[in-house]
Simulated scan of single mutants.
Amino acid sequence: MTTTYRPAAPAPAPARPRLVTRPLLLRLVSMLGSSIGFYLPLSVVPLFARESGSDRAAGLATVALLLATVACELVTPRLVALVGYRWALGLGLVLLGAPTVVLTVTDAPAAILAVCLVRGAGFAICTVAGGALTATLIPPQRRSEGLALVGTVAGGSSLLALPAGVWAADRWGYTPVFLATTILTLLALVVIPGLPRRVAAAGASAHRGLLAGLRRPALIRPATIFAAVTAAVGVLVTFLPLATSDQPAWVAAAALLAQPAAATAASWLTGRVADRVGPARFLTPALILAAAGMATLALIGTPAAVIGGALVFGAGFGMLSNTTLSLMYGREPAGNESTVSAIWNTAYDLGMAAGALAAGLIVTSAGYPLTFLLTAAAILPALLLSTQER
């Protein structure tokens, strides 16, 4: 009898874990509420403050918002450990949305800054607690892709909300923008009961984890690279509408639309590839794109250059937002999601605040074009750090 050799059939490839689940969908709804609550009035409040007669409050509005955000981000991991994701997210949405209604009845500089401070605390809770929860809902094998999906939702909302706020304020005034911010943010509370109630480690260990994370170069390098570009975001969203105020309103609105549109698309495309080739490969080209785009904004008298610069800058920013966060989550064990979320979001908001503050100090004497060029130059040292991530 002749025995015929038949090679064994190859083992089937393991099925990829499901990415989109009901908890993740509910989380995306809550993220949509917080993103709209943050971005819709972001460029409107400085305009509102300047029209009220306080140029100083116009510059300090974004700084106050972001400094409060940074301060609260560092303690949010402990809050999550104490009360859980649901209560933390609910509190964050209330603090982010409700205070904006105050601006419908007063334009006092002190009131504007107080509203920004409270909103900053709310946004900090939403981003850190929400980011940590989101990380637990994404399979590690599809981390970059999952973060790209999340970034698309956040970017899509900012894509609409940031320019829509400026356009609506110009067309209908400030009160409708502030009322819409409050209503749309608080509506997201309806999904909170459907989110997981898992909590992080005990408060003390969570706090020690954050401090330990701040001493880890493997986390701080990507966070610092990201902060170099978010500083430029702070300059763009605060001063671009002011720099183009002598042009038609659509110029600033189109640029503020182009930046998050490009960021969303770049984040999505990067995430689709980064799980296979590694996210670190994208750091250097992303920084180059961001610097080039910011330098182009110096041509403020040319609408095409302003919009094109915002588009190129947004592409670099989107690539970095996905890759730096993916790198950081990949370097921490499960259970430390709040630590990574707090450090990354602190880099985001501290960078934005530093950029807005520094630009506010020099823009009067330097002018807008030179301020944008200096902002582009400030991105370039981060290239040295990006070479260490390869």
Score class of each variant (00 low, 15 high):
S326A: 15
A334F: 09
G330Y: 02
G84W: 04
E332D: 03
L236N: 09
V166A: 02
Q388W: 11
T106H: 06
A200S: 15
G53Q: 04
A315H: 06
V363C: 12
A261Y: 08
A114K: 04
G335V: 09
A61D: 02
P41N: 06
A9S: 13
L289P: 10
P222H: 12
P77K: 01
L103V: 10
T76I: 12
T302K: 11
D349C: 12
P14S: 12
G59I: 01
R6H: 10
T127L: 14
L242P: 06
A71N: 07
R331I: 08
S321W: 11
P139H: 11
A261F: 12
T76L: 01
G314M: 02
L283P: 01
A223H: 05
G151L: 08
A243R: 05
W167L: 15
L25R: 07
W250H: 05
P217G: 02
A114E: 11
D275S: 03
N345S: 15
L32S: 13
G314A: 02
G271F: 00
A262L: 10
E332G: 05
G130R: 04
M1K: 10
A135Q: 11
I192F: 01
L327N: 02
L113I: 15
W344H: 13
A111P: 05
A206K: 03
F48Y: 15
P99K: 00
T364H: 14
P333T: 12
T106R: 06
T136L: 11
T100S: 15
A202D: 15
V115Q: 06
A315Q: 07
S341L: 02
L19C: 03
G122N: 10
F282G: 03
A13G: 03
A359L: 07
L357H: 05
Y329T: 03
V237I: 14
A253I: 05
T346I: 08
P46L: 00
C116G: 10
A377W: 10
P333M: 07
N336W: 12
G92L: 07
G156K: 01
